[in-house]
Amino acid sequence: EQRVMALYDFQARSPREVTMKKGDVLTLLSSINKDWWKVEAADHQGIVPAVYVRRLAH
């Protein structure tokens, strides 16, 4: 499974989004949309801005 790391803090503004802190490692579920990526963090799935995360090497 692909992982991403948060580059910045992000506060969810809707139930579809995921709140994350800089340095958090999340599971990447989908990167089809270039602006918003779907991730999973602590059993919560949602979207985060793609520019706020970076793919981690396997």
Rank of each mutant, 00 (worst) to 15 (best):
K38G: 02
V51S: 15
S31L: 09
K21D: 11
M5T: 10
H58I: 14
A57Y: 15
D35F: 08
V4R: 01
E40R: 14
V51L: 12
R3G: 05
P49Y: 04
D24H: 05
Y52P: 12
M5I: 14
P49N: 04
Q11Y: 11
K34T: 13
L28K: 05
E17W: 02
V25P: 03
D43F: 02
T27P: 09
R54P: 10
E17R: 03
K38Y: 10
K22I: 01
I32W: 15
D9W: 00
W36Y: 12
M5R: 09
E1R: 11
P15T: 10
W37G: 06
F10I: 09
L7H: 00
S14M: 00
L26I: 04
L7I: 11
L28E: 08
I47F: 15
L26Q: 08
S31A: 13
L7Y: 04
A6K: 03
S31Y: 10
A41Q: 10
H58N: 14
E40A: 14
V48T: 03
A42I: 08
M20I: 06
S30M: 08
S14H: 10
R13H: 09
S31N: 10
A57G: 14
V4I: 08
N33D: 14
V51K: 15
L29A: 00
S30R: 02
V48H: 08
V51R: 15
Q45R: 12
E17T: 03
D24S: 10
Q11V: 13
A42H: 12
N33A: 03
D35C: 13
A12G: 03
M5W: 01
Y52W: 00
T19N: 11
V53F: 08
V39E: 09
R3H: 08
A6E: 08
L29G: 08
K21F: 05
P49D: 01
S31M: 12
D43W: 05
R54A: 09
A57E: 15
K38T: 15
V51P: 14
W36S: 02
Y52D: 06
G46V: 00
R54C: 05
V4D: 04
K21P: 06
V18Y: 01
K34W: 00
E17D: 03
W36N: 08
M5Q: 09
F10Q: 06
V18C: 10
S14F: 07
R3Q: 10
N33G: 08
T19F: 09
S14D: 14
F10R: 07
V25H: 08
R13Q: 10
Y52A: 13
S31G: 09
V48Q: 05
K34A: 10
S31P: 12
R13G: 07
T27Y: 11
V4Q: 11
K34V: 03
Q11E: 09
A42N: 15
K34H: 14
L56Q: 01
R16S: 15
L29K: 13
V39M: 02
V53K: 02
A41H: 15
L28V: 04
Q11H: 08
P15S: 11
A6M: 01
K21V: 02
D35E: 09
P15A: 10
R3P: 00
Q11N: 11
L28I: 13
L7D: 11
H44S: 13
Y52M: 12
M5F: 05
E40Q: 14
D24T: 13
L28C: 15
S31C: 11
A42C: 11
V53G: 07
A6V: 01
E1D: 14
L29P: 13
V39K: 03
K34I: 08
W37K: 10
K34S: 11
T19P: 06
R13K: 08
S30D: 13
V53I: 04
T27N: 10
M5P: 10
K21S: 01
D9I: 09
P49Q: 01
K22G: 03
G46Y: 01
D24V: 08
W36M: 10
L28A: 03
L7S: 01
S14E: 03
W37E: 02
G46P: 04
V4W: 00
S14N: 13
I47P: 09
W37I: 15
K21L: 03
